[in-house]
Simulated assay, not measured.
Amino acid sequence: MSLGPRFFSGSLAPLGSVIMSVSPANICQVSFVGLGITIISLTMLPKAVQKHVLDYGPRKIKRSSSDDNGKGVEEPEPAPSAFEQALAAVVAHLQVPHSWFISFYVFYLLCSAYWAAQWWSWRQAGPGSEVPNNLFGLIVTRQQTSDLVLASMPATSMVLAQVYIAFTLEAVQTGRRMYEYLCVFKPSKAKMNAEHFLMGFIYYAIMSVAVWVEGSQAIMTAKQHNTKFVPQSAFAKIVVGTFFFLLAWVGQYRCHAHLASLKKYSLPEEGLFRYLISPHYTCELSMYVALSIITAPEGRLVNRTVFSSLLFVLANLGVTADRTKRWYSEKFGAERVAKKWRIIPFVF
């Protein structure tokens, strides 16, 4: 018995519906999850490889215990296998200067400028065209239409004010980080793994879409009706979220300024560093939580796409903070950091 076109068209129809229901927001969310899983998977590599992949600067983690005075006592590590040695040698050569970190922020600002220009020049599909005239319009249109495949009504959307605020706050945060790398931080010869460098670019590319993609419905409506109405619930989210974002924004700057003022490889103990190993990471997480509140569509507490970025940020910063605490314990004594949380008070 032969399988004709009717069989394939009928059997693949449900698959086609599922594919069509995958919106740009879903793609962003899945990508953030994938990046987070990638970071976690790196912690399962052989220890001989981990130090090249996960550490930079002074953080060369060693197996250690503490003596009676709490000082780190180095313990011999088991000899790595030939495969582990070969893999570690390859990974060790895939390093880039940590100072290149500033390129992430330049890249994000360029992405934001690109989407802003695309938004300005976007025209909706006319009678003689089935697609918008640029990529921004294509994403916005796909986001709205994909919600109709498996739902009877369009998903709720951010309002334009939320999109504008999100764009602005992310640009302010990115601009401040550029300023810190240029004017606050001391020059460093530290290296970081090229894999982290590549993931950083992927993350910021996705984030440049995530901050506005759930506002697609409002963007399309504004093109048609030029509406500027801001519901009371959205206004409340903007006010509350912006307050906490700016609070964390200032807190992170103060943490970075304190770190920059320290003698090389000293233990930070002022301000939030009295309670946390990496409070600047705590502030980073807080800003993304605040941003997800600011951009929450009608009827939701958070923006799912922006909030999902926390899966990567938490995995990335959590691993780094954990290894930083181990290094502090080894260098300065376990008793000096034993009572400090890594990044999340009372949790981690």
Rank of each mutant, 00 (worst) to 15 (best):
A334M: 01
K331F: 01
F83K: 14
G271C: 10
F136L: 11
K325S: 10
S216G: 11
V149R: 07
I344V: 13
Y181Q: 14
A86M: 13
H93E: 11
A334I: 01
W249N: 06
Q252P: 01
S121G: 07
L310M: 12
A205W: 06
C255M: 01
K60H: 10
F273W: 07
P46S: 04
K71G: 00
P14A: 11
K264V: 09
L276M: 13
L45H: 02
K340S: 09
S308M: 15
E214V: 02
V302D: 05
W119E: 10
N26S: 15
A48K: 05
G16I: 00
V250A: 01
E170Y: 02
V347W: 08
Y328Q: 05
L109A: 05
Y203E: 04
E195V: 13
L317R: 14
I102F: 02
K60S: 10
V159S: 07
G126N: 07
T43E: 03
L317T: 11
S208M: 02
F185G: 03
P80Y: 09
F201M: 03
L169C: 06
I277Y: 06
P132M: 08
S146G: 08
P24K: 06
G241T: 04
F346P: 00
P132Y: 09
R63Y: 03
I277V: 15
V140P: 05
A205G: 13
S41G: 07
H93R: 15
L110H: 01
K51Y: 04
S2Y: 09
H196N: 14
E284T: 10
I277F: 02
V289Y: 13
Y275W: 14
K71H: 09
Y56C: 07
S157N: 07
S233E: 13
T324V: 10
P76G: 08
I39M: 11
G137I: 07
R336H: 04
S2N: 11
S9L: 14
R177Q: 04
P279T: 08
A290T: 08
G271H: 08
N133C: 13
T282L: 13
T295M: 12
L314I: 10
W100Y: 15
A334H: 00
R342E: 05
Q85D: 09
R177H: 03
G4P: 03
T305W: 03
F229N: 12
E130A: 14
Y203C: 02
K62D: 03
A315I: 00
A171Y: 03
P14K: 11
L262M: 08
Y108M: 12
C283Y: 12
T43P: 01
M178N: 04
K223C: 11
R176L: 08
F8W: 15
T221K: 14
P231E: 04
G299Q: 10
Y56L: 09
P5Y: 07
Q252M: 09
A48Y: 02
V184T: 15
Y108C: 08
K62A: 10
Q162A: 09
F235G: 12
L262N: 06
E269M: 14
R176T: 00
H280K: 12
L138I: 06
A234V: 06
K339H: 11
C283M: 14
P97T: 12
A79T: 12
